[in-house]
Amino acid sequence: MNEPLQQGAANVVQVQSMAKAGRRPRLGEQERFMLFLIAPAAVFLLLFQVLPIVIGANASFRDWSLNNPQKTWIGLSHYVAVLTDSTFLTVVLPNTFVFMAGTVVLSLLTGLGLALALNRSFAGRRIVQTTLMLPLMVAPVIAAIMVRWMFNDQFGIVNVVIEALGFESQPWLTQRWTAFAIILLTDVWLWSPWFALLLLAGLQSLPREPFEAALIDAASPWRIFWHLTLPMLRPVILVCIVIRSIDAFRTFDIVWTLTGGGPARQTELFSLYAYQLAFTFLNFGRGSAAAIIGGIIILCVGLSLYRLLDRLGASEVKS
Rank of each mutant, 00 (worst) to 15 (best):
R286I: 10
K318A: 15
N2A: 15
N152Q: 08
G28A: 03
F99C: 00
P263C: 01
Q70E: 12
V160D: 11
D63I: 01
P40Q: 01
T280R: 13
P193V: 09
L197F: 13
V50G: 02
L106V: 07
D153C: 00
M133N: 10
L272G: 02
I157H: 04
P40L: 09
G102E: 09
M34P: 03
I254M: 04
V92H: 13
V255A: 13
F122E: 10
L277M: 13
R223Q: 10
T267R: 07
E316H: 03
L308D: 01
L76R: 03
A179E: 08
L199V: 12
I157C: 02
V239K: 05
S304D: 06
V141Q: 05
P231M: 09
T84H: 12
L47H: 02
V239C: 08
W191H: 03
A9H: 10
W194P: 00
L185N: 08
L303R: 10
M146P: 09
F48Q: 06
G294F: 10
F36W: 12
M232I: 08
E168A: 11
P193G: 09
G102Y: 06
I183T: 06
D63Y: 12
S271W: 12
L277G: 05
P25Q: 11
P221I: 01
W64V: 00
L173P: 05
F97S: 04
A164R: 11
K20W: 11
F249G: 03
C240F: 13
G260A: 05
T131G: 12
Q266R: 14
F61Y: 13
I292A: 07
P235W: 11
V161I: 11
T186A: 07
G302C: 04
I142V: 10
D187L: 12
L93M: 08
K71F: 15
L282E: 13
A19Y: 14
V147M: 09
S60E: 04
Q14V: 09
V92L: 09
E3I: 11
N95S: 04
N58S: 15
C300K: 05
R120C: 01
L5A: 14
R250V: 07
Q129G: 08
F281I: 08
I53L: 15
S315Y: 13
V141A: 10
